[in-house]
Simulated scan of single mutants.
Amino acid sequence: MTENTDATGSGGGSGTTVAERPMVRIEDLHRSYGSGAAAVHALRGVSFEVPRGELVALKGRSGSGKTTLLNLVGGLDSPDSGRITVDGTDLSALGEKGLLELRRDRIGFIFQSFGLIPILTAAENVGVPMRLRKADPREREDRVSLLLSLVGLADHAAQRPGELSGGQQQRVAIARALANRPALLIADEPTGQLDAETGLAVMELMRAVVHSEGVTAIVATHDAQLLGLADRVLELSDGHIIEHA
Rank of each mutant, 00 (worst) to 15 (best):
G11N: 08
M23N: 11
A39N: 03
H41W: 07
R31Y: 12
G15W: 12
G15A: 09
E20T: 10
L29D: 05
S35H: 00
A38D: 03
R31W: 10
H41E: 13
G15T: 09
H41R: 13
P22A: 13
V40S: 06
V40H: 11
G15C: 07
Y33D: 09
G9M: 08
L29E: 05
E27N: 08
R44T: 04
V18W: 12
G12W: 11
T17C: 09
S32V: 10
D28Y: 03
G34L: 02
T17K: 10
G13C: 04
G15S: 07
A19L: 15
Y33L: 09
R44N: 03
R44K: 06
G34T: 02
G34Y: 02
S14P: 00
G12I: 07
E20L: 13
A39K: 09
L43C: 03
V24L: 15
A37N: 02
I26W: 04
G34F: 01
A19E: 15
R44E: 05
V40W: 10
S14H: 09
R21E: 01
M23H: 12
L43N: 02
H30K: 04
G11R: 07
H41T: 05
R21C: 02
S10G: 11
P22Q: 14
R25I: 10
R31V: 12
V18M: 08
A37L: 02
P22R: 14
R44L: 01
A39E: 11
G36Y: 00
E20V: 11
A37R: 08
A39H: 04
E20S: 13
S35M: 00
Y33A: 07
G12K: 14
V40M: 08
G13Y: 08
H30P: 04
V18E: 05
G34C: 02
V40Q: 06
T16L: 11
E20D: 15
A42D: 08
G45A: 01
G45I: 03
S32D: 15
Y33C: 05
S14T: 14
A38V: 00
T16R: 14
H30D: 14
H41C: 05
T17M: 10
A38E: 02
R25N: 09
G13R: 06
A19C: 14
V40Y: 10
G9P: 08
H41G: 03
G34A: 02
G34H: 02
E27S: 12
I26T: 07
A39M: 03
D28T: 04
E27Q: 14
H30C: 11
L43P: 01
Y33T: 07
G11M: 06
A19S: 15
L29H: 03
V18I: 13
R31I: 10
S35A: 03
A38I: 00
T16G: 01
T16H: 08
I26K: 04
R21T: 05
P22C: 12
Y33V: 08
V24I: 15
S32T: 12
R25H: 09
R44I: 00
M23E: 13
M23T: 15
A42L: 06
A39V: 09
R21N: 03
G11A: 08
A39T: 07
H30W: 15
